[in-house]
Structure formats: C-alpha cells, structure tokens
Design a protein around this nucleic acid. Structure first.
Length: 1121
RNA sequence: GCGGGUAUAGCUCAGUUGGCUAGAGCGCAGCUCUGAUAAAGCUGAGGUCCUUGGUUCGAAUCCAAGUACCCGCACCA
C-alpha cells in the first residue's frame, strides 16, 4: 500500500522530527547529497564563527536557519558546497567563563593557579580554556544537528583530533593563528604596526585594555557623583578656578586646567572668594533634553544650574569678566599636591592651558586635565609638554605615592567618599551632585572602565580608503538598514585598531621586541619563526602557538645582536574571526583551490555590532591580504526578543533555551511575573518563524507566535496532506499512472496548478535575492487561502465519490502534484515536515530523500492568468454572498432559490459565473445563479439616509425634516455626489442647506424579498424568500448534520455503512425526512432504513433538536452489503 | 552633536517599478460549517497610511520641511 495512514489528532511534530534525524543518519542522506553534487558548480558560503563558550540559544537559530535554508536550496539545484561550520574559540569571553568556573578573581589568581609557578599556571589555564571550547563546540554541534542544520559536523572520532584536522573550523587552530601572523606581517611590511603609549580604557577586573570596538559595546547609563572643586590661583589671592568632574579620583592626578581662549569667563564673588567660570556655563540648563526625554537614572534629581548652586550656598555677585585667552598661563594650587606622587611633578606645573574643544554647555567651562587618566587629557598633555601622573595599577588600585589612597580601588564608593571628605576638609569642595551619563563598561564583565596609562599595540588604519573601495563592491542586505552606509560610516570614524590584550588565552601576537633598543619585528609564519629562533624552539616544538610555550622562543636582533622576546600580549579576537576567508579556504595549503571558493557568495549574521566587528574584520583583513571583498552578498538580521518585545534574559525568566523550544518544552515568565510552562514547538516551526520574518526588524519570539504559525500554516499543510493520504490509501490511488492531460482537468485543478507555478516562481526569486520573507508570506497565503480553504474545500466531494472517474483521477493527481511540489518548495526551510510528507508520498522511482530532489522549476505552460483572475472574482462573489446571508441571518445550510450577479457581457464577473457557476451554487447553497446585465437597469438601488452622528450636533431637532427631505430627493443623484466626495445641497423647509459627504450614509437596497451586497463595482442580490420546499430541504440538511455527528459519536469509520432509525413527533421533520430520504441516505451512508427503534447490540442512540423539535437518532453499523 | 532608518487598525506587521474602494494575523463582537473535525471558516466594528507643503491625471508609495520613535557613530571634563 503506497500511502500510510496519517493522523490528524495530537500530532507530535518534535517526535516526527527526531525520527527524520534518525532516517537521515541511517541512510547517510547528507553524504549522498554531497556525493551527488560533487561535480556541480560551486556555491560558496562562509560561516561566521559562533562563540563556542555556552550552549546555543534560540537566537542563534535565526542565522543558522538562513544558512541552512540557502545551502539546501543551492544543493537542490545541484551546487557543490563546503558545508563548513566555524567555532570562535579564543579571547577574553572564554577566559572570563573559565575564571568563573574555577572561582578565580583576577589575573593574579590565574598566574598562581599552580602556586608559585606562573608558567605552569598559564599552561593549565590555557588548557582549561581549550577544554571549555571543545565542550561547548560539541554541545553546539549537537544542537545544530537537532535544528536540522546540515553541515559537515564533527563526529566522535573527530573530536579526538586536533582542531586543525576537524571538519568544522576552529579559530584556535594553528592554521588560523599562523594566517593571522601572515596578515600582521603584511601590515608591518607597510609600516602600520606600532606601539602606543596612551591613556586607554581599562577594565580593572579583567586587567585588560579595551579597543574602540569593544568599548562601544559597553556604554550604560549610570549616575556618578560629580564634584565642583575650586583650585586656588597662586598669584591672585582669594581667587579660584572652578572645575567640574564626574570622576573625582582623577583629581589626584590633576596637572593642568584647560580653558577655551575664545570664551568669556565670569568672576563670581561667593562668600569671601572669587570664582572663575565660563559665562555660558553659569546659567546653562544642564542635560535638559535628557531630563525631558526621561533618559535618566531613577532616583537622581534634576540637575541644578551653576547659578542655582551658588544661590543655594549663600548667594553670589558677578564682579567682572575676562577672556579665556587672558587666563592662559595662570598658575594654581593642585587639589592633592600634598600627596607624594603629585607633589613630585604636577605640583610644579599646574597652569591654565588653552583647549579649543572646551565647551560651556556642561561643567564650568574650565576642564581639569589629568593626562594619566583620560584620552584627550593625554593628547593635550603631550602637546603642552605636561608630565602625566599615573595613579592606578592594573587592578585599578592606587599606587604607593598617593598617601592614604594607596591600596584603595578607584571604583570603590568609599574611595570616592574619602576623596570628597578630603576635599571638603581642605575647603576646596563647592558642590556635589548625582550626575547621570552614559559611561563605558567592560562588555564582558560589566565592570566600569577606568582610563589608565598603558602601552598597547596598534594597527595604523590610515589605509581605510582601500577598505572602503572594497566595501563598495559588496551587496549589503536587507537594503532598508543600509548596511553599506553603516560600514562606510564606521570606516570613516574608526580609530587605529588596538590589537593587543594583556591576557592569556588567544592569538599569540607575533611581535618580538628588543627591550634595550625598543626595536621590534613581526614574524609572519611558523617557518619564519623556526628559522629565526635562537632559543626555546625545542621546548616549543609540538605545542600550539599559544601561551606560555610560544613565549619561550627567542630571536636575535640582527642590528644589535640582542635577544628579542615576544611581547606577552595576546590578540584581539576579531583578528581570529576576520582571517577565516583565508585560513578556512585553504589559502596557505592550496591557493588554486582557495581561488575557487573566494570570495564567498554569501555570508549572514546578526547585524547589531557586526559592522564594527566581524564584517569590519573580514573586510579589513581581506583588503590587506588581497585587496578584494571576501564576500559578494551580506545578509544581516536583527535580534531575537521575547514575545512581549523585551530583551531575553535568563534572569528575567524570559529566555528560551534551544532544547526547550525544540524538544523539551520550557517555562516562560510574562511581564506580569506569571510563569507558565509551554510545550515544545519543534525545529521546523522555529525555522519557519525566522525565515518568514523581516530581517531588518527584531523578532518577538515565543509560544504565541509559534502557536499562530502552527495553526495557520503547519497544521493546515499537514491536514491537507493527511486528507490526501487517507483517501488515496482507501481508494488505492496509484501516483505512477500516466497523468491526465491538462485539457481534461477541471478549471479548479488548472487554477491551483497555475497558481502553484506562480508560487514556484516566487520561491526561486526569493532564494536568489535572499528574501525568504517574501516567499514564506506568499506560501502561507497559498496553503491557507488557496489550497486548504478553497481547493480542498471545493474538491472534497470529488474524492468522496465511490466510483472511479476521470474527474476523481484528476483531483488525486492534482492534489498529489500539489503536495509533492509544495514539500519540495518548503524543504530548504522546513526540512523535517517536508521529509515526513515526502517519505509517504514518493514512488519507488523517486530519490530516497526530498533533499536529494531537484528544486521545482516553473512550468510556464501551466500559467493561466485569465483563470486566476476569474477565480479571484469567484472568491469575492462567494464572500459577498456569505455577507448577504449573514446580513439577513440565514445560515448557509438553508438552500435559497436564486442569486443574481450584476455583470455585463464583457465583465470578469460574467466570465467567472459562466465558468464557475456550479461552485457558486454549491458554496452559497442556492438553486440558480443568474446574470443581471446593468443595461437592463440597476440591480440594486441606492438609498441615502442621514448620519445622525454628524448631523445631530449640527441640526438637532431639524433632523426629522432633513430625513424626510432626503427621502424625497433623487437618491441616485445624491449617491453619486457622495461617492465623488462632493457636498450636497438639500432643500429643507424652504431653506437650502449644505451637507458634507460624511453626513450621509449611502447603502444599496435590493427589491422586496431580496438582500443586496456591494463591493466596489460588483453587486449581487440574493433571494431570501423561503418556499415550503426550500425550507424542507434545509431541515433535511440539518438532519444529515446531526446524523453525521452521531456517527462520529459512535466512533464509526468514515466508510462504514449504517442502519438508521429516525423518530420524531414533528410533522415538518417527518415530511422533510420523507421527502429527502434518498439524500439523507446517500450522505450518511445509510443502507438500511428502520421504521422502528433499533434493537440489539451496537446501537447508538441520541436525541437532538432540529428546528426546535426533538429528533431521536438511532444507528448501528450495517452488516449488509 | 553627526549620519541612517522607521512612522499603515487596539497589538504585531505586509504592501513590488506611483495605478485600490489600503490589507493580513492576533485581539474584540456576532455568527457559521462539520468525516481534514481537540481542526476550521465567515461577517462585522476598528484607518487623517505621523503632520504640512510639493511633483503627478493619480501618492501609503516620489520630493522637501517639521514631529515622534529606533539604530549607528561621536560621546566630553
């Protein structure tokens, strides 16, 4: 038997999916696909590496759905693919998790993992990092397989191999690391690698400097205590500069004060002192915009103006003014000159300097400058020859030389307390306030950043224009987010690339330094290092190029003969991910092969952040390596949020784990705090949900949208499939019989086959233009509206007929084609459901898996535009008819005599009724459909009534007069004007009044006994007069419905024949039953009528009400033939 | 501050190159169907397509300005 029976109740889709996974596994389907396409034209996809640091979440499934869908589509078109997944392995994110696992608090703890042995400690720590990456790479592999993501996944034996020999690529592989060396060497050869000494953003917890792109990730709105501090002028007794800062700890390292030479500064007398501050700053409404927009930190009061501060502290008087330029060179007393360290250098400086960037919308217009604690400060200090004071160590703790502050953390509140107290005691503190501002935090551990003087390594990005020219050649999708412009914007604004990290687990930067001279060299490959090594190679040999082993290798400075050591820094992880267009495509091993796959046809990732991260890194590195774009098309997509549009957070209880969504079910806490458990949705629904979404927008993911999708799409498709299989099975339909020619198929069949071709066209266009949404939305409409709700509904009776006819054959063949084609169309997006369907639909001469089939192509000969138009017209006629019935509350089950459709001979309505009259009869349950030529006069007459809503207020009591005047007026003329949007003049009580179109309600009225409906140009009228015969027929249909209901109650199979007894006291019921005895019998498969109540076993009895009258139904399965 | 985007029903969103009487789903209201049946369907209410100008025979769509929101960049003492 070709078709298995298909259940429609409580279908466990996740379980079906798991069965398909086993089927693929058992048959080696994926390998067969690769084998089939191995000589096909290439399609090159490049996977952006997923961070192998935690299990995958549902949000990862978005990109992975795209990746898999496009790969499967191209595979179905015979393309040869690499199927290489990528894992991102190195970097601080892994270190932070390993630290957490090992309960380590700081770099010091890591270096002391093996007490007293830094080398061993680092070795062990790096080992743990590698282990963590392997662990989660395996987890993510399993999860991805469950998602149905077909990649060349690593198997058990592969995990025992080193990363370089596995199927997926790992950024920790030697190949990847050494290819970055080659990149850095190229940079160095162009003189672009340099060592920078600068005040850098620094995370005191991780003890690491942050690059510009990392810093951008971590801005958060927080409130700090900001202070107004006076700095007494040395040669002007009783006079002070007033400065303001949000980071009081930096005052310890104050060296200078900057003014804008072009601004006017006020001399303000307050109590016994004179304060200098910028005129504009005095009254500036600080952060007013933010306050209004509520971009504020809860609990922080509105900021006072400087003027208000002075007023509240006892008043002020403006006693003069001075230009900023005239203040340059003034000397003042520093706020912490009594401390040993500041007293050494800063104390002798403390002068007013000029800085054109000083503004007066915030602060005092005089900026406290601490070159050791701020980026601009440092720059300014360099220009002015100011000595920087560096107060903090790598943990953000004050160094010795800062008195009581030594050993205290700059971030600690009590440290700020101490500083404020100290300033207060010295009488320097004018005011303290809470100040909300967006401040950088460590994007990994959320610690507030400090600025600290450090030495880091950079790539000079002055060649940005070269990258821009490469970017110009890439297609960025979706168009609406303007990715190319964003990327170019970043390239314009970005600074030099800080590539060093003072950490342990990562790319070993191949920079060797001669400590005595400061000379450095960049090594470009393992071979080069081996060649140059003068020490330590033997110990390093056999290890991956990671710390601590690589640090043992020393080279000689050819100029001085000095020994050169590798800098201890590791690399920025975006170098790791950025090199993959080379390292993973055989660039070093087989350049010819690389050229076949480079550039990638396609990449896709979530776009927030990536324009300065991965997209940037691959574009920049590819420009340096080959001056070519690494990909042709980039598709970005948004973020996944919960179904209430909130960000997903584990702590908020609204994050959905992948396993939960796929198989296990999950709990979810709604915005009101209620937690509920939900069943799994399965991979197909997850995938379709992502595929159908607009990639430019964030996606609200959760049980509600999943359920909606299941109901309106998955289940409908499934029900149609089940309907087909279950009847085809009973009927013994043979799909291999020669198909009937199109000419012999009814219009309904030719219509759906025609529209199917249009869907195939949409599908192909969508996949080729990377716009899955367009296809999915169209597919949903096709399945729901066209296939399920119209084609199958209208065709059902064709399948039920007991005799074999050509019409029945046509119906089976058409629906079979439909299901098979749709399954193939949807296969790239819903690989499981479509495979399940295919397995039950395929014949022996078809490929063993749907994923080994060819993607459908459009058969232009089947497209019939005229037919589609007429079918659409028919659908709107049906809608109108149903609306008309609804209007007069006559249910569809009640037959009516006649439907009139207004249609001229050349109208589409005419053609539709001609062609599909029988469908109209059946669907609207009328006896006759007739055409009404408008030339015979209007079918419906306009009727114009006053609109009391608008006229009431205007005319009050005169409404009645207006109504009667309207009734007397020419309705047709009025209606025409109203439709045209014109005003209407109405003579009412001898007076002409003007009515606006909205004041009148125009409806279309049918003749007595009829009900009319209008939709645009289309008009219909339905005869609502019930004759005795019609009424009896309606009753008979009610009886049938109840009998069917009872058959179901009695759990009969749908092909079972029955014996039936119907008992009633109602004359009308009796008459209806008698008159329509044959019809009832045919519908309910009654082959034995009983005039007496049934006896014996297996009798099902029920009493129902028909037309308000009791009817006894008794039935049992009939043994007669 | 600079740059970009968006604005369509109560909510979430579709709407091709200008060609509508502007749509869907959810929600709401009222119904209906019934061997695909623990599924489904229909009808209805609900719109200033953000505002104002312009281009055009015709604008949700194109242009300009404004408003609001979002994003990116720069973020300052």
């Amino acid at each position: 038997m070709p078709f298995e029976k298909v259940l429609t109740q409580q279908v466990d889709f996740p379980a079906l999916e798991r069965a398909i996974l086993e089927l693929w596994q058992r048959n080696g389907t994926f390998e067969k696909l690769r084998q089939k396409n191995r000589n096909g034209p290439r399609w090159s996809f490049l996977d952006g590496p997923i961070t192998a640091n935690n299990p995958m979440g549902v949000h990862h499934a978005w990109g992975r759905t795209y990746k898999d869908a496009f790969q499967r589509y191209h595979a179905m078109n015979g393309r040869h693919l690499r199927y290489q997944n990528g894992f991102d392995c190195q970097g601080l994110w892994v270190e932070v998790e390993v630290e957490r696992e090992l309960k380590l608090r700081s770099k010091r703890d890591i270096e002391n993992l093996v007490p007293g042995d830094t080398f061993q400690s680092i070795d062990r720590f790096v080992h743990y990092c590698k282990e963590r990456v392997d662990k989660y790479a395996r987890v993510q592999t399993e999860q991805s397989i469950r998602l149905g993501y077909w990649m060349d996944w690593d198997r058990e034996e592969d995990w025992r191999k080193p990363p370089d020999q596995r199927r997926s690529y790992f950024t920790m592989s030697e190949e990847n690391n050494y290819t970055i060396w080659a990149f850095l060497k190229k940079c160095h050869q162009r003189g672009l690698i340099y060592r920078g000494y600068d005040a850098m953003p620094w995370c005191p917890r991780c003890s690491v400097g942050l690059s510009q792109m990392e810093m951008a990730e971590g801005y958060q709105l927080v409130a700090h205590r900001a202070v107004f501090v006076r700095l007494p002028l040395r040669d002007r007794p009783g006079e002070n500069l007033l400065v303001w800062t949000t980071t009081p700890w930096t005052l310890t390292s104050n060296v200078a004060a900057a003014v804008n030479p072009g601004l006017t500064y006020l001399k303000v007398r307050h109590k016994e002192e004179i304060y200098y501050l910028a005129k504009g700053a005095f009254t500036a409404q600080r952060l007013e915009e933010q306050w209004k927009k509520k971009e504020w930190v809860a609990g922080v009061p509105k900021l006072s103006t400087l003027e208000q501060h002075f007023k509240s502290k006892g008043g002020y008087e403006i006693v003069g003014s001075v230009r900023g330029a005239d203040m340059i060179g003034w000397s003042y007393e520093g706020p912490f000159d009594e401390l040993p360290e500041p007293s050494k250098s800063a104390r002798t400086v403390h002068r007013v300097i000029a800085w054109k960037d000083v503004g007066e919308t915030e602060g005092t217009g005089i900026v406290h400058i601490a070159p050791g604690c701020g980026k601009e400060d440092f720059q300014l200090g360099k220009e002015e020859g100011l000595p920087p004071v560096a107060p903090l160590d790598e943990y953000g703790v004050f160094l010795p030389g800062f008195g009581e502050l030594a050993g205290r953390s700059a971030l600690d509140h009590t440290t700020t307390d101490w500083i404020l107290d100290n300033l207060q005691q010295k009488g320097l503190l004018l005011a303290v306030e809470k100040y909300p501002h967006s401040y950088p935090h460590c994007w990994r551990c959320k610690t507030e950043l400090l600025f600290r003087l450090v030495e880091e390594w950079f790539i000079d990005m002055s060649w940005r224009d070269e990258i821009k020219r490469v970017v110009e050649q890439v297609t960025f999708l979706p168009e609406s987010i303007n990715g190319k412009a964003r990327e170019l914007d970043w390239l314009t604004n970005m600074g030099d690339w800080m590539i060093s990290k003072k950490r342990f687990w990562g790319l070993a930067l191949p920079i060797w330094v001669d400590e005595q001279t400061g000379d450095f060299e960049v090594i470009g490959s393992r071979a080069e290092l081996k060649e140059r090594a003068v020490e330590g190679w033997d110990k390093f040999e056999g290890h991956t190029p990671h710390r601590p082993w690589i640090d043992l290798v020393k080279i000689r400075n050819p100029k001085t003969g000095n020994r050169m050591s590798r800098i201890p820094d590791v690399g920025n992880p975006w170098l790791d991910a950025g090199i993959v267009p080379f390292s993973t495509m055989y660039y070093n091993r087989d350049r010819a092969e690389w050229a076949k796959w480079f550039p990638a046809d396609f990449i896709t990732e979530s776009f927030p952040g990536q324009f300065r991260n991965w997209f940037y890194a691959i574009l920049a590195m590819s420009t340096m390596m080959e001056n070519r774009p690494p990909m042709k098309v980039l598709l970005g997509h948004g973020l996944v949020r919960d179904q209430w549009d909130r960000p997903m957070h584990k702590s908020a209880g609204n994050a959905i784990p992948f396993e939960g969504a796929a198989d296990e079910g999950y709990t979810l806490t709604d915005p009101k705090g209620k937690t509920e458990r939900y069943p799994p949705m399965g991979a197909d629904v997850i995938r379709w949900m992502f595929a159908r979404h607009n990639p430019a927008h964030n996606l609200d993911f959760g049980p509600a949208p999943a359920e909606e999708l299941r109901a309106k799409f998955t289940l409908k498709l499934w029900n149609v499939y089940a309907f087909f299989c279950n009847y085809a099975r009973l009927d013994g339909f043979d799909p291999s019989v020669l198909p009937l020619p199109m000419a012999e198929r009814p219009d309904l069949d030719r219509w759906i086959l025609s529209d199917l071709q249009l869907l195939v066209r949409t599908a192909r266009e969508a996949f080729e233009s990377y716009n899955l949404m367009a296809f999915c939305l169209e597919a949903e409409r096709f399945v729901d509206d066209k296939l399920s709700n119209w084609y199958v509904r209208r065709s059902r009776r064709r399948f039920w007929k007991s005799e074999q006819s050509r019409d029945k054959q046509a119906a089976y063949q058409t629906l079979y084609t439909m299901l098979l084609t749709l399954a193939k169309l949807f296969a790239p997006i819903m690989p499981f459901l479509t495979e399940t369907m295919y397995q039950n639909l395929k014949t022996t001469d078809m490929p063993e898996s749907i994923h080994l089939c060819a993607y459908p192509t459009v058969d232009e000969t089947l497209i019939d535009a005229e037919l589609s138009e007429e079918m659409n017209c028919l659908l709107s006629l049906v809608s109108l008819g149903l609306a008309a019935r609804n209007n007069v509350k006559i249910k569809v089950r009640q037959p009516l005599a006649e439907l009139k459709v207004q249609a001229s001979a050349e109208s589409k309505e005419y053609a539709a009724v001609e062609r599909f009259g029988d469908q109209l009869l059946a669907e609207l349950n009328v006896k006759v459909v007739s055409l009404h030529d408008p030339e015979w006069g209007p079918l419906l007459m306009p009727e114009v009534k006053p609109n009391p809503k608008t006229l009431g207020p205007k005319f009050g009591a005169r409404m009645k007069d207006i109504a009667s005047a309207l009734a007397a007026a020419d309705a047709e003329e009025l209606a025409m004007k109203v439709r045209a949007g014109d005003c209407v003049e109405l003579t009412c009580g001898g007076e002409v009044i003007l009515l606006e179109p909205g004041d009148l309600i125009v409806s279309m009225k049918a003749p007595e006994g009829w009900v009319g409906m209008v939709d645009g140009e289309t008009q219909i009228a339905l005869d609502t007069r019930l004759t005795e015969a019609l009424s009896l027929e309606g009753t008979a249909r009610d009886v049938v419905r109840h009998v069917q209901e009872q058959r179901k109650e009695a759990s009969l199979e749908m092909e079972d024949r029955i014996a039936l007894y119907l008992g009633t006291d109602s004359e009308k019921l009796r008459q209806a039953i008698t008159t329509h005895r044959d019809y009832i019998a045919a519908e309910t498969l009654t082959i034995e009528w009983s005039s007496q109540p049934l006896t014996g076993p297996g009798v099902h009895r029920a009493t129902v009400k028909v037309d308000g009258q009791p009817l006894t139904i008794e039935l049992r399965r009939s043994m007669a033939k």
